[in-house]
Every structure is written in C-alpha cells, then in structure tokens.
Amino acid sequence: MNIFRLAGDLSHLLAIIILLLKIWKTRSCAGISGKSQVLFAIVYLTRYLDLFTTYISLYNSIMKIVFIAASGATLYLMYVKFKATYDHNHDSFRIEFLLIPCVILALIINHDFTVMEILWTFSIYLESVAILPQLFLVSKTGEAESITSHYLFALGSYRALYLLNWIYRYMAESHYDLIAIFAGVVQTILYCDFFYLYITKVLKGKKLQLPA
C-alpha cells in the first residue's frame, strides 16, 4: 500500500458516499445516469468475486464489501425508491455498445485464460468506460448539479491517483500491470474534459454548464 493508492481508494469511497448522500438527501436521482451505476455494479461484482477465494488484507476485504453494498444501495435508490425521479429520456446511452467490446477484448487480451482472470480483465476494461453514460447524460442536459460534479471529480481523481500508484509501484517494487495501466489511462482521459470544466467553473462557484 502507498499513499497514492490509499488516496485513490478514499477518493473512490468519497465519490460513492457523495452520490448516495445526494440521492438520499434530495430524494432524487435527477442528473444521475442509472446506466453508469449498473455498469459500476457489474464492475464490482465481476472484479471482487475473489472476495471469497483470496484473502489479501482486512482493508481489501472490507473495501470490496463496502463498494458492492454501496453500489447495490445506489441501484435500489435509483430504480426502486426514487424511481419516479429517474431521468429515462436523457439516460439513453446504449450500454451494450460498451459491454460487448469489453467482453471480446477481455477474451483476447488478458494475463491468463481462466474464468477469474477473464472476469477481472472484463471488469478492468468495463470500468474504464463505465462513466460514459453519465458524461453523455451531463452533455445532453447541458449541466450538472454541483454535488454531481463533486461526485464526478472524486470518481475521476481516484483512477488518476491510481496512475501515480502504478508509477510508484513500478519504481519501488518493479511491479506493473499493463492491462490495468492502459485501462486506467483511458478512464482518466475520459474525465479530462470534465476536470477542465470543474476547475474553471465549479470551483469558482459557477454551475457546471457545458458549452451548448
């Protein structure tokens, strides 16, 4: 464990908590893409199956349980409790266009052709594009509530911090995983446009408005 990875995990946890609080407090999931949340749930379920087979550390196991539980709670709030506030019209990204290529790529480029490893690889590829429906929704509505932009900033920062973690681990432990690194770079790049808007607008107290 290093400071970059810990900061990344905490940023990830913060993002998930911000989202849950936003939906719970405002009793609305307006502006949030349910499809992205479905993809994140798939990412956690396919990646954290080793929760029952491999014990790495108490921290690792607890965080996995928290992420899966929070993801399930978010889906429950969005699709059951506050279903009426879910923005079906704007949340129209075709997630099969993300799922199918990730499955194919995971079958072609992986470290080991075993079920667990293929699922892990699929999860890594899917996570890198899972935010697209959310960014698509923000672009369609042309704006995002400030709490939603804080959520996106924390979520984008988590993988950016992981990039620093991978540089550190390469230098300090000569450990690297090209699949995770490649997907992490793609994932972080997808947020760049949003990071620019967040820093130039939201931090100045303005509303996040995308140029029409």
């Binding site: 990646r47 491999t54 790495i56 690792n60 996995k64 470290h111 080991d112 075993t114």
Partner: peptide, 10 residues
C-alpha cells in the same frame, strides 16, 4: 508467468 498474477488492488 503472469498466470499467478495476484490482484492486490481494488
């Protein structure tokens, strides 16, 4: 080889 790749990250 990578086969025994242990994924110790979240």
């Amino acid at each position: 080889d990578y086969g025994d790749q242990l994924h110790d990250e979240l």
